[in-house]
């Protein structure tokens, strides 16, 4: 009987000690915020487009950490999805939305059609549209994330999403991708 008592007391003491250690550790080594969410957020393209169903990239990152699917980010494309899947240790899944979003686009406002309603300004998640009421608006192309959010609210449909073209500086040096143009109708050299 006393043996049992000793065992119970000992185990109880042990449990207390470990509990104290755990409690101490929980307080002492508490990590502020969610580091995993930070990592996921760093992978997301920060378009803040909301196509994932969350209001911005950060909420989606937190949702992923909370167990949401990794394939809800069309702007990030397959590459981003795979990276997140790798980070989260889950199987990559095909993107939920269409893959046409792969091409990077920026918004462009046809300025003579703009009525200056400021609706797109309010919609832009990154404040990349300048203008004021009754004044024409324009998109700061550099800051535009191509999220599409301004297209829908426009009452006169004067916003286009234009694919970003390559210039000499951003050319990717893929020689095989150069279209070989035939200019035979002109005199041969």
């Amino acid at each position: 009987m006393s043996g049992i008592m000793i065992a119970v007391i000992l185990l109880g003491l042990l449990a207390l000690v470990f509990g104290a250690i755990l409690g101490f550790a929980a307080v002492k080594f508490k990590v502020e915020g969610n580091p995993l969410a930070d990592q996921v957020e760093a992978l997301l393209p920060q378009t803040q487009c909301g196509q994932c169903g969350y209001p911005g990239c950060r909420p989606y990152a937190e949702a992923i950490v909370g167990g949401d699917k990794v394939n809800k980010c069309p702007p990030g494309g397959v590459a981003t999805m795979e990276k997140i899947a790798e980070l989260m240790g889950v199987e990559p899944e095909p993107l939920s939305a269409t893959t046409e979003q792969q091409v990077k686009k920026v918004a462009y406002i046809r300025e003579d059609e703009c009525i200056g309603c400021t609706k797109c300004i309010q919609a832009c998640p990154v404040d990349a549209i300048v203008g004021a009421g009754k004044l024409m608006h324009t998109v700061i192309a550099q800051d535009c994330t191509g999220c599409d959010l301004c297209v829908e609210p426009c009452p006169v449909d004067c916003i286009d999403m234009i694919p970003v073209t390559q210039d000499l500086r951003s050319w990717n040096w893929k020689l095989s991708a150069i279209p070989v143009t035939q200019l035979e109708e002109e005199k041969p050299c």
């Binding site: 020689l175 070989v180 143009t181 035939q182 200019l183 041969p188």
Partner: peptide
């Protein structure tokens, strides 16, 4: 006139 291209 199309010319052959290749990398240096």
């Amino acid at each position: 006139m199309a010319f052959r291209i290749s990398s240096s």
